[in-house]
């Protein structure tokens, strides 16, 4: 489904991703772990279409198309979803507006009729129940004045409503208490299916106790330095990231875990 080949990305002239290779197939859950500054979020945002990053080499194919050539909205319509690490507040645009605009643009793209008001609200309410969210939340401005946990839940709500083919979750677990983490994990697991792929970008292995990954990749200084099964995450939990960075053969500076 997703094939990242030797992807190199710089931000304001500074190389952040220095040759990422990653293949994700339908039905798989991949965890991308790594210390702060390793490039995890840059990878997630590049896949969603953030334009302030410059791709300096390599490429990304998604469902046999050049993902990087697609506008962010086009990626979304083709089934890519990014749960933002820092969900953006959009004052004056209510959640219900955004969800309606989003779902109808996706449906239109797929040649489906737009949902009528009753179908739409029915769908949103069902997903809100899954996410333990109060009804009034959908009439509030997108993320405005939301607590950290509410913002993350709201991301997963959007994901649940939009039912993407490829979901990329950028540190969705950070800053969540254990109850909120369970709710978010429930939302993610509800989406798991043989047709979908999920990429979990995370700093900690904690969420992986609730969403079991098929593969774990460790990112360090812009490269994937180790890939392995779920157990790799547990090892990281015990040993930290330092040992991998030291082991990274092409790392010019050695360990620099912050």
């Amino acid at each position: 489904m997703l094939e990242v080949r030797n992807l190199q990305v710089s931000v304001e002239g500074k190389a952040i991703l220095r040759g990422i290779d990653l293949a994700v197939n339908a039905g798989e859950v991949h965890a991308i772990m790594g210390p702060n500054g390793s490039g995890k979020s840059t990878l997630a945002q590049v896949l969603a279409g953030r334009e302030s990053f410059t791709v300096t080499g390599g490429g990304v194919r998604y469902l046999s198309r050049d993902l990087l050539a697609m506008a962010p909205e086009e990626r979304a319509r083709e089934g890519v979803f990014l749960a933002f690490q820092y969900p953006v507040e959009v004052p004056g645009v209510s959640n219900v507006y955004l969800l309606k605009a989003a779902i109808n643009s996706l449906r239109k793209h797929r040649g489906l009729p737009e949902l009528d008001a009753i179908e739409f609200l029915g769908l949103v309410r069902e997903k809100m129940t899954l996410m333990d969210m109060a009804d009034e939340m959908i009439y509030r401005s997108v993320n405005e004045g939301f607590s950290g946990g509410e913002k993350k839940r709201n991301e997963i709500l959007q994901m649940a409503v939009l039912e993407p083919k490829l979901a990329i979750l950028d540190e969705t677990d950070s800053g969540l208490d254990i109850d909120a983490l369970k709710v978010v994990a429930r939302g993610i697991n509800a989406l798991r299916s043989a047709e979908r792929a999920i990429i979990l970008v995370t700093h900690y292995q904690r969420i992986l106790n609730y969403v079991a990954p098929d593969f774990v990749h460790v990112l360090s200084q812009g490269r994937i330095v180790r890939s392995g099964p779920r157990e790799l995450a547990l090892e990281l939990e015990q040993r930290g990231y330092g040992w991998l960075e030291e082991a990274a053969p092409t790392s010019p500076l050695g360990a620099s875990a912050k």
Binding site: G49, R50, R75, A101, S105
Partner: peptide, 17 residues
């Protein structure tokens, strides 16, 4: 970018904001 990443056209996103 946030609105667009949910599938909303850039022109619609601008008007909405």
């Amino acid at each position: 970018l946030y609105l667009r990443s949910r599938g909303v056209d850039e022109a619609v996103a601008r008007s909405l904001l």
